[in-house]
Nucleic acid binder design. Structure first.
Length: 271
DNA sequence: TTCAGCCTGTCG
DNA sequence: CGACAGGCTGAA
């Protein structure tokens, strides 16, 4: 899915919508709404409201309207694409819904249907929801980062992927960050020294910022808010490169499973 | 803490 | 045909 850098890229692309009134909503997949416990009627309430601002926490993106907050989690294949002129017959596959703003439409599609939608009508429930998500990987302070990992016995990669610990990192960035920080993905999180934690923290921020500057990673399905591809995949050093030589030492990159996810790492460089 | 299950598509 | 894919959840 879109991980933090991809969601941040989409958020920036959508900022052109800020200030515009939402003229209409068209729902193409009612079952998708139902699964997310949103009725078409509730959603209709958004019509006429103005988009005030956008926000993101981890992999969640929120559209703040005058009276409601509409949240998206893109799962593995969700996309939010801005099109200048709405064309109900367009070729987007797996369309879920479209939001028609003044002179622009936003299309939400989701092939695998792992994405989720959230509709909040009060500030309190929204705040409670935010609290349930771990601190954003770009916002978290070192002291919190250290504190959060100190008590975790499971592998460091599992901890990085746990959105309740830190939010925003997925399988691509976990592998890329751990390689660049020279840390073995299987190390119990609590076994990392202060020095290693410091390096991991720094590396995490650097990799995420660099990925955002390159508009995210496009492996297969991800597209930004304008329907374009990201470029960070050209900088991947280990993600899905098992069997190939380590770019630093030449040792063959190994493939293992961590937290149920395929993991690629260098057994020589990552200790 | 792990792991099937949720979905659809693609590749070997 | 099976295996696998940027993720999360709930049950064991």
């Amino acid at each position: 899915m879109p991980e933090l850098p991809e969601v941040e890229t989409i958020k920036r692309d959508l900022s052109i919508l800020i200030g515009r009134p939402l003229k209409a909503i068209i729902v193409y997949d009612e079952a998708y709404l139902e699964k997310n416990e949103i009725t078409p009627k509730e959603l209709k309430k958004l019509e006429g409201q103005r988009l005030l601002h956008l926000s993101r926490k981890g992999k969640y993106l929120f559209l703040h309207f005058s009276q409601h907050i509409f949240g998206f989690h893109l799962g593995l294949t969700g996309s939010l694409i801005l099109v200048p002129e709405e064309n109900p017959l367009d070729k987007f596959k797996h369309k879920v819904l479209s939001l028609h703003f003044l002179e622009m439409s936003l299309l939400f599609s989701d092939m695998r249907k792992f994405g989720r939608l959230f509709l909040f009508d009060e500030e309190k429930s929204f705040k409670d929801f935010l609290i349930s998500i771990g601190q954003d990987a770009l916002e978290i302070e070192f002291s919190e980062f250290k504190e959060a990992l100190r008590s975790i016995r499971k592998p460091i990669k599992s901890a990085l992927l746990d959105q309740k610990v830190i939010s925003g990192i997925g399988n691509i960035y976990a592998d890329e960050i751990l390689f660049r920080a020279d840390i073995n993905p299987l190390r119990p999180a609590r076994s990392l020294s202060d020095e290693e934690l410091q390096k991991l923290y720094q590396t995490m921020k650097e990799v995420l910022h660099l990925a955002i500057s390159l508009r995210g990673s496009t492996i297969k399905d991800y597209v930004d808010g304008l329907g374009g591809a990201g470029m960070f995949q050209t900088k991947h050093l280990v993600y899905q490169k098992y069997g190939m030589p380590c770019p630093r030492c030449g040792t063959t990159l190994e493939k293992i499973k961590v937290a149920g996810r395929t993991t690629s790492y260098c057994p020589q460089c990552q200790r």
